[in-house]
Nucleic acid binder design. Sequence first.
DNA 1: TGTTGTTAGTTACAAAATCAACCGATACGT
DNA 2: ACGTATCGGTTGATTTTGTAACTAACAACA
Lengths: 145, 145
Amino acid sequence: MPENDDFALQDFLPYLLNQAAEAASLSFQRVYRDRYGMLRTEWRVLFHLGLYGRMTATDIGARSRMHKTKISRAVSALETKRFLTRARADADRRTEFLTLTPAGEAAYRDLCATARTHDAALVAGLATEQAAALRAALKQLAGRD
Amino acid sequence: MPENDDFALQDFLPYLLNQAAEAASLSFQRVYRDRYGMLRTEWRVLFHLGLYGRMTATDIGARSRMHKTKISRAVSALETKRFLTRARADADRRTEFLTLTPAGEAAYRDLCATARTHDAALVAGLATEQAAALRAALKQLAGRD
DNA sequence: TGTTGTTAGTTACAAAATCAACCGATACGT
DNA sequence: ACGTATCGGTTGATTTTGTAACTAACAACA
């Protein structure tokens, strides 16, 4: 009845990606939300700081492609949770370096461990090379990193 | 410096999926936004109606896994745009059937054509089987359809 | 019929994301 | 030094989403 002869829009990549992304983040979201009262933006900032060590907000933005304001607010939230500290740079007093506190690092490690489990569960249905291929393709689509 | 020896969290699937999804939808979003003033939810509803023909809001929800309220609002918006009409069902007066107007169908066809182009551009860097494998993996992650 | 439970869809309110304007610090050209 | 532009980051207003409560219609069963 509908005239979608040639192109199956159920296969439209943006749609598919979004569906998969939403499904995949759901279970993990519950973890950082219930366990640490974090938002996804906060978890992402934490994750960057845990992974790369001391960074500025701009650095995080460049890597994560999150908007300035999201990062700014996430940093504030993490600061009030005592998960990170700020330090003005001497060279350029506009920038501030962000560092995880011990509590922040602990949360990071805990979440990493949980993330590992979730990741494994997600790819459970896929063969090893399939999973690797998937990650590679996603990286390319994401444009970098 | 950071102690992420074993597990590269840059490869964390929810993160990767989200990055790719965001990057992929960006260019297409501009199309339906600028050309028709639509939101993503609206485009999705339009897309379902165009693809499957007359449906109820609940049907759309079951297929797209969007929440009731999102659908309700998207339907209202599409109705004010004169892209769809509602018709109460005789059998059950709670449900209403949604049908695209000619204008709605025209928009659907236009956006489909554009979507096809965008999709092709996205998978341009991938081999044909790679793209197919990607879609298959995403479908599985999405849980269905 | 009357009660209880469920379903389709909407609405109200809170939470969060987006956008634009903003402040202070720096850089640059003159 | 001075004006202008730019950059790092924050704030406030608006928009969009999420959560819950709600209305109306139906179903089932006494």
